[in-house]
């Protein structure tokens, strides 16, 4: 029945994104063709995207294709999680630059293969010094280094 999971999922993705933008545009004034409101262009684009999504999805039932590689949740979640962690620690939690760098490097390394604590801690230490030198000292980015400092 389903011939191409890639096309099916991609089609669904475009339908959701396009449909969302088009429907959400209802919150904004449409305007006229002469004086286009903020909703005019996004509505056109949104429906076009959703329409293409339908075509791509239909293709998923007709044109055979290989299955996508299985999703690797571990690297996917840890890598992106490490970025979010960095943001959280620096901004709302105010842990400071050093703590955020160390935590996010170790979290990121954990998402890879062949994780070794020793390696991760050494590279976290090296990266802290390098990033402090390059970004805080060199470029003068306004990071606080430690909590409260």
């Amino acid at each position: 029945m389903i011939k191409s999971k890639k096309d099916l999922y991609a089609g669904l993705m475009f339908i959701v994104i396009g449909g969302f933008f088009a429907l959400w545009a209802l919150n904004y004034p449409m305007g006229t063709a002469v004086r286009m409101g903020p909703a005019y262009f996004p509505s056109i684009l949104g429906w076009l995207t959703a329409g293409l999504g339908v075509i791509i999805m239909v293709r998923g039932f007709t044109m055979p294709d290989v299955d996508p590689n299985p999703t690797q949740w571990k690297p996917m979640l840890w890598i992106h999680g490490s970025a979010v962690l960095f943001g959280l620690l620096v901004d709302p939690l105010k842990i400071g630059f050093v703590g955020a760098v160390v935590a996010s490097v170790i979290a990121c390394a954990y998402g890879g293969y062949e994780f070794k604590w020793k390696e991760a801690i050494i590279s976290a230490a090296v990266l802290t010094v390098v990033c402090w030198g390059a970004f805080v000292y060199g470029l003068g980015l306004p990071f606080r280094l430690f909590p409260g400092s």
Binding site: A109, S123, L127
Partner: peptide, 18 residues
């Protein structure tokens, strides 16, 4: 690569933040 990628990730995070 297993040593490199956390650094690349971190540079991206810092860059985006800045």
């Amino acid at each position: 690569y297993r040593i490199l990628f956390p650094g690349i990730c971190l540079f991206c995070s810092i860059g985006a933040y800045s």
